[in-house]
Amino acid sequence: MIIAMASGKGGTGKTTLSVNLAKAFSQPVQLLDCDVEEPNDHLFLGGELLNETIVSVLVPEVDASRCDGCRACSAFCRYNAIIVPGKTALVFPELCHSCGGCIKVCPQNALKEVEQRIGLIRTWRSGGISLLQGQLDVGVASAPPLIRVLKERIEPDRIVILDAPPGTSCPVVTTLRGADLALLVTEPTPFGLHDLTIAVEMVREINLPMAVIVNRMGIGDDRVQRFCQAENIPVIAEIMDDRRIAENYSRGLAAIDHVPGFRAVMIELRDKITALCRKEA
């Protein structure tokens, strides 16, 4: 069972709900922090760091003694990552999408693939939860390659929770692909509704079953619920706005262990998600 926790708007509670939901299961859970530009799930688990692996992508390297400047590579590359300003090709690895096309079209065999580091994957253990965290290196522009490598570690027979980055761009799409259920976390405000609308469009494009969680109930209005009703999207949880949840978050604590009544809310959510996944399967 692979559940992806996403949202259009940032700060709606993806991380809070991912971590607390993971702690609500009695079975072992794989929690993947796919927000590789600023992963923070580990702060709320307080687990033990087990290992760290370097992740690299393949980029071309030019052998200047073989390159005759024919421009076959630069004509092929749609990302402008390889160019021939003078007699030999010049590579911009940060623009490369690692397709390997330039290497195939080079008639002189002047290009070879070399590894370029893009980030790390860390594994943490906390009770029954094993947290896999991607961390993109500072200055690396593209997150999807690291997210793809992170997702290769998914054990689909287990309960898997994917904590997605905010928004609706490539890193989010990469996180969501292959999930059994997309949970869209929103808040009942005009901003929440606006970004939820875009997120719903994205999930429909990827063709995943989805459900909405309205977090911080009590602020805003009921337009999110009316939208979900009109669009026929189930709202599977309405979580009250509670200052104690935010206070625990600010201390790096999981609310499920510290806010009375919150465990019951998370267990109800857990059971609804499990039922929904069974129905969709």
Binding site: Y79, I83, V84, P85
Partner: peptide, 15 residues
């Protein structure tokens, strides 16, 4: 309208 690398391409044009 290039998604990325406009400066690189423009530089190649100039060269």
């Amino acid at each position: 309208t290039a998604a990325q690398g406009a400066g690189i391409q423009a530089a190649e044009t100039v060269v």
